[in-house]
């Protein structure tokens, strides 16, 4: 479990992280979202015990990262930004080094190394210097290092950056499979990833925590939440039909996507009325969809609001 209280970090005049507080319980996967330079990495570095906070505190499994750093670090697996590792070492030697520093016994170390090699498909490159590996392999070596000692708490700074779609999928599967008995923080700027792995998401911009909610609840903040989009050839006819409905507040046409979106009045359910109206008028349509809300739109609204831009 991770407890962060009023965590702040100041570099000279710049307040990189400003009074951020949150708690992550076992079983949760927390997604850390925010524009570049928002303070995501700085916050993670402080929880991992690399940077000392200017004020506030962070606890990992009950151990304050400043007062009992070794106890906290033992329980933590950390993938730093950019997945750094020693380039001249081979993945096998590198993992052996990590196992030794972490104090794993000879047999336990061998068992865990074999397990992470299997989980992250490193078998083919075990004996090549890390600096000669592709970005995807290097990232996976970094991940292997982070989960090697099977820690109860994982902090992963952009774990899928530089991976191809298949590898991304596998890493997300891996994170999901570990989530049950671990506390995990994942930073990303890929919003689909939040749906794929996170049970909760935090949005940070300019160092301030702006939103902390389940992905579905964040989507519900979108103006698209509950809207209905219709794809059709005859957009004008569709628009005319939707405008007549009393439940519909507004209609927008997206000509490039050949799509009409109707927004509900006062949160009314409009899926039924829209389909009925189109059918009654005999208008052909290729598809109709009830929008859950668009995370990218919520993200933009929250992170570019006036209060943040100061």
């Amino acid at each position: 479990m991770i407890e962060v209280r009023a965590l702040s970090k100041r570099y000279g005049d710049i307040l990189a992280v400003d009074q951020v507080s949150f708690t992550v319980e076992t079983g949760e996967v927390l997604g850390f979202l925010g524009p570049n330079g928002a303070g995501k990495s700085t916050t993670m570095k402080m929880i991992a015990g690399f940077l000392a906070p200017t004020s506030g505190s962070a606890r990992v499994c009950g151990f304050d990262v400043e007062e009992q750093p070794l106890e906290a670090k033992r329980r933590l697996g950390y993938l730093p930004e950019g997945a750094p590792s020693y380039g001249e070492m081979t993945p096998l030697r590198f993992l052996k080094f990590i196992a030794d520093v972490r104090g794993l016994s000879e047999s336990e170390g061998r068992k865990r190394i074999a397990a992470v090699i299997e989980q992250l498909h490193l078998g083919a490159v075990l004996h090549q210097p890390i600096e000669t590996l592709s970005k995807g392999f290097r990232r996976r070596v970094g991940l292997a290092q982070a989960i090697l000692h099977d820690p109860p708490v994982l902090i992963l700074d952009e774990p899928t950056d530089g991976l191809d779609p298949n590898q991304k999928h596998e890493v997300r599967e891996l994170i999901r499979s570990m989530a049950k008995d671990k506390t995990i923080i994942v930073s990303t700027h890929i919003l689909e990833e939040v749906h794929a792995v996170c049970t909760r998401a935090i949005i940070i911009a300019k160092g301030r925590l702006l939103a902390d909610d389940a992905p579905a609840r964040l989507e519900a903040r979108s103006r698209y939440h509950g809207a209905v989009s219709v794809s059709a050839e005859d957009l004008v006819a569709v628009e005319a039909a939707l405008r007549t409905l009393p439940e519909v507040a507004r209609v927008e046409i997206d000509a490039t996507q050949r799509r009409v979106t109707a927004f509900p009045r006062d949160g009314k359910a409009i899926f039924e009325p829209v389909t009925r109206s189109l059918r009654e008028r005999g208008i052909a349509f290729a598809g109709i969809e009830l929008e859950r809300g668009r995370l990218d739109e919520v993200f933009r609204t929250i992170t570019t609001a006036e209060g943040v831009r100061t």
């Binding site: 690399f50 750093p69 730093p80 930004e81 290092q145």
Partner: peptide, 14 residues
């Protein structure tokens, strides 16, 4: 330069 300092100093080592 390579960022491994972050890795090294977040391992359980003083």
């Amino acid at each position: 330069k390579s960022g491994t300092i972050e890795l090294l100093l977040t391992l359980p080592i003083s």
